[in-house]
Write a protein that binds this DNA or RNA. Sequence first.
DNA 1: AGGGTATACTTGACTGGTCAACAATATAGC
DNA 2: GCTATATTGTTGACCAGTCAAGTATACCCT
Lengths: 165, 165
Amino acid sequence: MDHAVASWVRLLRGHAALRRLVSTQLQANHGLTVSEYEALLLLEEADGHRLRGVDLVAGLALTPSGVTRLLDRLRKLGLVERATCEGDARVAYAVLLDAGHARVRQAACGHVAAIRAVFAERYTDIELGQLAELLGRLPGASGSVCPAESTASIAGAAPPVPCSD
Amino acid sequence: MDHAVASWVRLLRGHAALRRLVSTQLQANHGLTVSEYEALLLLEEADGHRLRGVDLVAGLALTPSGVTRLLDRLRKLGLVERATCEGDARVAYAVLLDAGHARVRQAACGHVAAIRAVFAERYTDIELGQLAELLGRLPGASGSVCPAESTASIAGAAPPVPCSD
DNA sequence: AGGGTATACTTGACTGGTCAACAATATAGC
DNA sequence: GCTATATTGTTGACCAGTCAAGTATACCCT
């Protein structure tokens, strides 16, 4: 029995099912994708309701171009605007507008309720604590992502077997 | 702190990071996406090395059209072929070809090694058992192909090739 | 047998995201 | 100061997957 592989498979399946569920609810009720919602949430929690693109790259699990496109959409929706950083001309702040603030507040309520419902019917409080703790140890699951280190570990793991490649 | 929401967020992040790692390794070494690999694996384990599209829809976490497109790709790669079902003219079997058999055997090796590496450096065996069990309760996480215990068969599948890891 | 519904799969239009290449700015070392 | 390198972000080409709609077959009911 291989619990690592089992965990991986279930993580894949569980993620897909859960995300589809939440995504449908979020899209239907508030016209937001999961990533858009999470971006707004990060912005709301951020100091001055603004973040650099690079912070969103770390906070969401996206690539820089993904974030650029995400912000394009949010800007087109009128939920966010750009601002320059006087200290560093490279950065383009994303600033939460009032409309974005309102939208995320609306969405958060149903979103959190939906998630709680899914989890509450499957786990006890104690199990939820365990689950959160365990998932928090996954790469990138807590704090900022460190792709360099992780890829290195994978790259090192790939060829330990004479797999003809 | 809300453990349900925390779990959800970490599931999102962890899934994204992990999938990217595994996907990179699989793509670089064997030219397969995660879904393609998993489809081949399901086919290899299936009776007669063939499955209906609908079984793949259940076994992978995809929509029917996603599976159609996935099989298009695998067919173009020469790893799989179509077959009709004499009992039911609606179904289009996907049949694993020898090339597909070979490919998935090669890939399984490095794939499993990569996953074990990621998990082994973060969890004890006991924790892995817990994690697998908890994740198994997520919606769709235990979704299976024909037999009820097929997740276990994927998870516990001995690497199809003697894999020295 | 015939009509209605459910199942299995495909197709076209689209979307959210990736990657590679790039431009611009910042930082460090000589 | 001045070049080399790193950081921040954008763009074009592309890709895997979704959704809505459609085709074809199977099943059920009277």
